[in-house]
Nucleic acid binder design. Structure first.
Lengths: 155, 155
DNA sequence: TATTACATGTTGCATTTGTAACATAAATAT
DNA sequence: ATATTTATGTTACAAATGCAACATGTAATA
């Protein structure tokens, strides 16, 4: 009697990966359009994380956006070059670290983009009831927690 | 009265993107370990799609794995070089196209990896009830359909 | 028939990303 | 006190990816 192993493409993981690809393609198109290529989706997310977590160093930021230190540094290089953030040295556990904050320009810019992103986020949810949205968010967050325990991010 | 725009990082989209990053990191580690770097997660997924969709040409495959033709072609180059698939010319709408099929070796290899992937997929679901799993899959598939309509994949 | 558009796959180059190593300095161990 | 480990950020090179263009052949159109 042969064991019936299900196809990977029927798994939840595959669905999420496909959704992520869609989101990536759309994000790239969307941002390149509404910002004239001045801001990438990843840069946008990073700014939001910086805003929600003031006074963190680069490595802490890396842990939050789940990217390694090199990549995180490069994102910040780009944001700094565009004048959207400012970097400054500071101490953390008696160690010199680099922290960052939004500039006036960055803040204004970010507010503007954030507003323009809303309609898209709403569109995605239109097919779902409020209750479904809540349920989906809850399940996704649980899944994220499971993954956070299993997966070690190289930071 | 200021409008209260929610943070992007509180959105469902952000959660999914983070989960996807976790899955990517883990997939890379996992596959590089159990296959000694011989197979990437993307190659594995591609093989599964090929198996589930026999007799398709490269472009049809590209549409299914949501990658452009260049990238799809390169994945197939790699799989062919490893002797896991065979490519052959065929006709589709009076047009010469390239199709592909698993080799004996590829089939055996794939079955083996598939079995080893199962425990991981199970682990991810452990925290959820069967009912929750069903619900989550259903919601994700709906979301995927919404995205499939909105996002045009450049193939 | 000539021309234009579409479908399919590939190539070449620029950009992005990943990996390993380096640099610095503090904490810890010997 | 000296050596080793840990934390943080950067640099340099290799690998992967994206994008535009090409190549070929069919369909559609003028």
């Amino acid at each position: 009697m042969t064991k019936n192993v299900p196809h990977f493409t029927d798994s939840m993981v595959y669905s999420i990966e496909q959704i992520a690809i869609y989101l990536e393609i759309h994000g790239k198109n969307f941002f390149s359009q509404i910002t004239n290529g001045e801001l990438t989706p990843e840069e946008f997310r990073t700014i939001d994380v910086i805003l929600c977590n003031p006074n963190i160093c680069q490595r802490d930021l890396a842990k939050l956006i789940l990217r390694d230190r090199v990549r995180t540094g490069r994102i910040l290089d780009a944001l700094e070059a565009k004048g959207l953030i400012r970097r400054f040295g500071d101490m953390k556990n008696k160690r010199l670290v680099k922290k960052m904050e939004l500039t006036e320009k960055g803040n204004k810019y970010f507010q503007d983009i954030t507003k323009r992103v809303q309609p898209y986020l709403v569109t995605l949810c239109e097919k779902f009831s409020d209750k479904q949205i809540v349920e989906l968010k809850k399940l996704l967050n649980s899944l994220k927690e499971v993954l956070a325990e299993i997966v070690k991010v190289p930071v």
